[in-house]
Design a protein around this nucleic acid. Structure first.
Lengths: 241, 241
DNA sequence: GAGTGGTCTAGACCACAAA
DNA sequence: TTGTGGTCTAGACCACTCT
């Protein structure tokens, strides 16, 4: 339970929409009514509804009201900033993680450039293959600043690293930049994934920052072409003049 | 010039950050100071700063202040909801559009399913190849509800359809859902693009909605593997309990 | 303790939609 | 005319950082 009123309202409505209690096209109560219901002010309600709108749950129309959207929310592969573990659980798929490497090593040149640190600086390197429905289709190569993460075990890598970072170490992950492109398969891809005759692979580069803006993680997530999907929700920014 | 105070503030800061007047890591004035400067209230300033934060321009830290982020903003291919024309102009690349078809036709079955309308209902079909630096690398297949768009010419299709929709027809585009996947190349791809020996192609499916939530456009944007890139900025949603 | 951002209030006026 | 969402105000209190 969150103590903020607006996130209480947000949570209530996301739940009602996700469980189908509020169906596509249904009109929400007016902001005034919701404010009364929660015993709060209209601006606080608006904060919650704005969040729902940003995340594709509802659409607000001036003079009319707020309406539930149909966004097929069940299939959200890597949109936003969510870990593989969180996604798997949400999707309820049969997944397995194979940890190939968990080591603290001096940073190689190519990774040093991505993390914007000096070469040789100690970093944690984690290489994991993700198996979905019996096929190894994703190769995750993570690099973490050792100055931020004192310890990392294969045990943790096989579970959820993010749960460890946020739970045990109470690191605050703030934002990330993601780049998606398609590249030639590497020897490592061929060795660790079930690729058949694929020549290309989808590469998702992820640059993750903490609350204090330090870039502490660089991840290369390599997806087999046929298993890659990305879904995005975007609102149009009205042109200004 | 926008009449809203908060979008005035937002515009001022995006400009200063994009032009490099405000550099990475620089601390913005406090919310109180900005409010005073613009002769407005703090909540209004906060609205502008929240937008800057959402769009990756700044990061706010409680007790410290707001800081300019470095997001290499210059290379934003298809993030968010922006048209090809707008993008090309922003990137300043040598681009050319080849219009292969602009016709009002009865809706075929597969498109009817995407647009959630009855088969045979009249739609505008536009097929365009995009040439970047002399190579045809993107194939855009657009389908618009004819009930929404009375007229569409090859002239308009060769320029910007969005500028026409928003400018001439004053349609209000509200939001869109985007799906990215990789598929086998089609005969049409081979015919209209410079593909060499490619076997796969990146497909971006775009479902565009108007202010009143009607789904009025379905677009299939097919990108040659080596020319595809997608950049995304995401903020972490703190887990609730 | 002073300064910062985060949440919230109880109003106000406006633009727009529907009856 | 009534109801809706959009913008804005002038405060308040809180949590946090820094000195």
């Amino acid at each position: 339970m969150n103590k903020n009123i607006f996130s209480q309202i947000y949570g209530d409505y996301t739940q009602r929409i996700e469980t189908g209690l509020l169906k596509t096209g249904v009109k929400l109560p007016s902001e005034h009514e919701i404010a009364e219901e929660y015993g709060t002010s209209r601006e606080t309600v608006r904060k919650a509804l704005h969040l729902l709108s940003q995340n594709g749950y509802i659409h607000k129309i001036r003079g009319k009201g707020s309406f539930v959207l149909d966004m097929n929310r069940m299939e959200f592969p890597i949109s936003g900033l969510v870990s593989f573990k969180e996604l798997s659980e949400r999707l309820g798929r049969t997944v397995r993680t194979l940890v190939h490497e968990t080591a603290c090593v001096p940073c190689p040149r190519n990774v040093a450039r991505q993390l914007q640190i000096a070469e040789q600086e100690p970093i944690w390197k984690v290489v994991r293959a993700r198996e979905i429905e019996g096929e190894k289709v994703i190769l995750d190569k993570d690099y973490f600043l050792a100055s931020v993460i004192p310890e990392l075990t294969e045990e943790i890598a096989s579970q959820s690293i993010y749960a460890y970072l946020e739970g045990q170490l109470s690191l605050k992950i703030a934002y990330a930049k993601k780049e998606i492109s398609v590249e030639q398969v590497s020897d490592e891809d061929k060795r660790l994934l079930d690729l058949a005759r694929d020549t290309h692979i989808v590469v998702v580069r992820n640059y993750v920052h903490l609350e204090d803006t330090t870039l502490f993680q660089y991840t290369e997530s390599r997806h087999r072409l046929d298993k890659f999907q990305f879904v995005d929700f975007a609102r149009r920014v009205q042109a200004e003049e």
